[in-house]
Amino acid sequence: MKKTTALKIVVMVILALIIPLFKDVSSGLLSIMSTVLIYAIYGMGYDILYGYTNQTSYGHSLFLGLGAYGFLLSVRNMNADFFIALLIGVAVVTVAAIAIGLFAVRMEESYFVITTIILVWIGYYLAMNMVNITGGDDGLSMTLPPISLGFISFSLYDPLIGYYVFLSFFAVVLVVLERIVSSPLGKVFIAVRTNPNRVEFLGYNLFYCKFIAFVISAVIAGLAGSLLAVRFRYASATYFNITYSALPIIWTVLGGAGTLWGALIGAAIYLLFVYFVSAWWANYLILFGALLITVMKFSPKGILGIIKKKISWG
């Protein structure tokens, strides 16, 4: 598949070298792309769950919010440095994901969905109510810790540095997930998605396979949450809202589920659209809702699915 690898490299080069050239033209583009990269991380993690093992969680913003607050509160209350705060954010999410996964992943599909919905609402209600801890709807802000690597220290207040930090995380997550997807585990995931019953008869513990996918996707969502807190120097209970659970679904379905890159495409389209349109049309979500339905009905494999078809037709 040399064509697709070349394409991927081109995209990465654009992201790494071309986009930053625009940093002065309008800090807007750099700013949007920073968020796109973070959202793409969130989306890729979700793709592992939905696109690769066909588990549709509608409560992933629980992990997004936990990651955001894990990072933010560590910085605010413990003056943690960047990496420690990140570690804490991810650790909190990992514990939650394991605890939830142990009983939720076992359930039949629809009960799994309903459970994630109930859990994220509990999280949202608690976050909205515990204003002293979370700042509720208004949220809390933080001063960004610098990133210290040995003798060098970077300030995250510089938008260009911030962009490269997010790009680096995006690249790392992408490489790790691509690795997983092409490994035996990844192939087993695809088998689970294709025919979960048969997989059991071949000697795989279906629950365990799905559980691994669940935890991986949750941890990545948590990472995205922490990065989101860094990006906006702020976290609020809104991160737990169910709309943030719908977003990765929109991105992966739109871009193409089960491809990882679809999440990047979906997140980019979403954010660019919101950036350019939301100022004069506040009800843009109606379009994404309609898009979800349309894509599911006419092109369930999303944009990448359409592109792949076009390529194979010559």
């Binding site: 549709t56 509608y58 009800n283 979500l285 109606i286 809702g289 309609a290 979800l292």
Partner: peptide
């Protein structure tokens, strides 16, 4: 198909919600 109909319902929810807002 649970995941497909869930996604359709999410789309419907978003559309209805925005229509209600409008």
């Amino acid at each position: 198909k649970v995941s497909a109909t869930l996604i359709l319902s999410i789309g419907l929810a978003l559309v209805l919600q925005q229509i209600n807002l409008i």
